[in-house]
Design a protein around this nucleic acid. Structure first.
Length: 379
DNA sequence: TAGGCCATCTGGTCCT
DNA sequence: AGGACCAGATGGCCTA
């Protein structure tokens, strides 16, 4: 039922009343002296109208038309004649028109507010589907979008390469271009020491030691024994992000993962044996040796840090039957590990996303396991 | 206290 | 014509 306002009633109808009626979906109709509805006017006159409103509020008793007349008279005395503006003649401003345009503006504001709420709702939904989801510490809008972009890239790379990245590389891929705070969240979500995501220049001395000494750890789980076998290096193009400038190397070398993805259910033979390693696994602007040693030191840091859990452990725990004890960290996993669906059935990115949506998580452990499951993708 | 983030208002433009 | 969309402006809140 629309609200019908006569000329007198319009002046008593406050903006709050308009807002209330508008948000309630109630139409407010303006009636002229004869009781018929007033047509809406050209909104381009709103500035002029506002000025007139202001002058009205200042207590001028003069009518608007006489005000205009006075203004034009003054102009005529002081300034040379200005050629008339083209276009339709502006209609005379009346109180009803002021109110009417105001109503239109209030309606538009309400629509805009609702539109932004819809946008924010969608963003909230997106927040729930990227790593590091937390109800208490929400990611900002821009960080959410960046993280989602990184996440999509990372998952796409996994699907493309069929190779399982270690958690540090995965975390670094997710953290590209994010603020330090969000980086910390990413690291926390993957149960890594946030320092592992710092650029190597900011490593403290012990980390620099690892960086300078090319340790490599066997990813089968024993954190105390350096992996001694030489491994292959391969030149790849970093397609994950554009180099900052052309003088910085667009080509990186990374070690090929020695642990191809295996089937969750039956430990089938390694797949994608000839697959390309993940291009985003390499720290940017590193020499091949730096890439190798930095990656190793990061793995060392991740595996030896007693306060942080490697995400890999849950992957292997669930998919290869390896328990967390294999990582020499008895505190690594606490409580029951949620059951894992058949990872071998997740062959498409959509399935991955759907899987994570279905397994919407409420806490870090569940989130970690859910994310960890995404490592295990079969072609 | 400066800076980041956010919600809201606003007017312009585009689309249906 | 009306609504959707966009970007600028503004003020409030929070945090380092």
């Amino acid at each position: 039922m629309p609200i019908r306002l006569t000329d007198e009633e319009q002046s008593d109808f406050s903006l709050d009343d308009f807002a209330t009626a508008s948000s309630a979906g109630t139409d407010v109709m303006m009636l002229d002296g004869t009781g018929s509805e007033i047509d809406e006017e050209d909104i381009s006159e709103f500035d002029e109208l506002s000025d007139e409103c202001d002058s009205e509020q200042k207590g001028s008793d003069d009518s608007m038309s006489s005000n205009k007349d006075k203004q034009s008279e003054n102009k005529g005395e002081q300034e040379p004649k200005v050629p008339k503006k083209r276009g339709p003649k502006k209609k005379q401003m009346t109180k009803a028109r002021v109110v009417k345009l105001r109503v239109r503006r209030v309606k538009a504001n309400t629509r805009e507010r609702n539109r932004m709420h819809g946008l924010n709702d969608a963003l909230d939904e997106l927040r729930e589907h990227v790593p590091c989801y937390s109800k208490t510490q929400k990611l900002s809008k821009i960080e959410t979008l960046r993280l989602a972009r990184n996440y999509i890239f990372a998952l796409a790379e996994i699907l493309k390469s069929g190779m399982k990245p270690d958690s540090v590389s995965f975390a670094k891929a997710l953290s590209k271009g994010l603020s330090q705070n969000t980086m910390n969240l990413v690291a926390g979500g993957l149960h890594l020491n946030p320092r592992t995501l710092l650029p190597e220049s900011s490593f403290s001395k012990p980390y620099q030691f690892y960086f300078n000494n090319s340790y490599d750890l066997c990813s089968t789980g024993n954190a105390t024994v350096p992996y001694s076998s030489p491994y292959q290096m391969q030149q790849i193009t970093n397609s994950y992000s554009q180099p900052i400038n052309s003088t910085q190397m667009p080509v990186h070398s990374v070690p090929i993962s020695r642990q191809p993805i295996t089937s969750c259910q039956n430990n089938m033979s390694p797949i994608h044996a000839s697959a390309q390693p993940l291009s985003y696994m390499t720290p940017r602007n590193n020499s091949p040796l730096q890439a190798q040693t930095a990656n190793s030191s990061l793995q060392m840091e991740a595996m030896t840090s007693s306060n942080f859990l490697r995400c890999d452990s849950s992957v292997d725990y669930q998919c290869n039957g390896l328990g967390p004890a294999m990582y020499g960290n008895s505190n690594a996993m606490s409580g029951p590990v949620p059951s894992v669906p058949d990872c071998s059935s997740y062959t498409l990115l959509e399935d991955l996303v759907e899987f994570q949506a279905d397994t919407h998580v409420e806490n870090d452990l569940a989130m970690m396991n859910s994310t960890a499951n995404l490592f295990d993708v079969t072609g």
